[in-house]
Design a protein around this nucleic acid. Sequence first.
DNA 1: CCGGACCCTGACCGACCGGTCAACGAAGGG
DNA 2: CCCTTCGTTGACCGGTCGGTCAGGGTCCGG
Lengths: 204, 204
Amino acid sequence: MAEMQAMPPEVEGGETTERVLQILSTSARLFATTGYDGTSMRDIALACGISKSLLYHHFADKDEIFARITLGSTRELVQFVESRLPEGAAPSLRIRAFMAATGEYFQRYRWAWIASTTAFWNDPQQRRQTERMLWRDRYEGLIRRLIEEAIAAGEIRPLDVPLAGRLVLSALNWMHRWHKPDQGMPAPEVAEAYFDMIFHGLKR
Amino acid sequence: MAEMQAMPPEVEGGETTERVLQILSTSARLFATTGYDGTSMRDIALACGISKSLLYHHFADKDEIFARITLGSTRELVQFVESRLPEGAAPSLRIRAFMAATGEYFQRYRWAWIASTTAFWNDPQQRRQTERMLWRDRYEGLIRRLIEEAIAAGEIRPLDVPLAGRLVLSALNWMHRWHKPDQGMPAPEVAEAYFDMIFHGLKR
DNA sequence: CCGGACCCTGACCGACCGGTCAACGAAGGG
DNA sequence: CCCTTCGTTGACCGGTCGGTCAGGGTCCGG
């Protein structure tokens, strides 16, 4: 049990006993650090201090564990970010809140985030990832809509909206490759610093 | 043989017969699409139309193939980008050239780039990646130095240089996750569009 | 004609993979 | 008391993994 990382609640879509949560959070950490293929069911069982068979008592197979992690964390991310957008505020401030909330979510559910962001991005058979992609599209659509609103409000100059959205998402999605928790700027601050750079530009 | 993707020349560090190049480029494509663990030596041999044993005639083990790809492409990237920086030009233009050159390199050596960028980023034992990291540091140091020069020249306002560098690199390194070759904007143009957004800012 | 040197092969190895199965022990309701 | 349910286990399965090995073919210099 020991030092397990938090998992997003994700009530629906399966039972959430303590043991299940332990398996999910432990697996998320392993998937994030050694990859999907690099993590065996034996590794997970050993890290949980249980037998391999017990994993199959709670989950149908390895894919289901992974799918629960990625789908759950992606859905929670979108809902968390949406809940953090200040209603009625200026579009640019809402973009800033979007980025800060993403940084905070990343900081809180680091392993699940990394596992979701890293693996299977180009799996042709797209195992159980279709529903996750729906949430991912909603997340990407959200930042584009915020940018469009900022353009309509005259805060942002007319530009390639999908590309601008990708620029924002690139900065956020690449954070896990260099950011160390408990070291340097907290992730939400990094996200806000990124916003300031992107919004105002590097130019003097 | 058939449809093999180009590999950077990388003369030094091993023989470069046609067969070796075929193995390297085929492996790069497989590593990029199915990951390191997801690519077996049998897969590589089959895709090359040769026996698995022949792989071990040309390479000591799987790691050596991977190391040749990642080290070679990283080294070539740095040297390519450095050769593309306009001497004596304004620092901001040199940053723009840095980004465009990276986009062009990505477009040209797509599989090797993706294989290098995707895998083993947090391998604790860091197999044969130490020399590659030296080149990676040089690449990252280069963009930071360019930004510092732009600040000294008064083109860019004083700011967190490492963070600004990471913003630039994030945009470039995330491209492979969404950019399709032969579809949409060519990668160098994307890189330049990114520069314009980051340099001038989204703000109207 | 000989003998290396160099490409190249199929058969094989132990280890580990994801997944299955029969059964055990404790808990709890009748 | 028994019976069912549920969390839990170790032994086991076929298949695939990275890697080895002995040797076949072919070409070339002597």
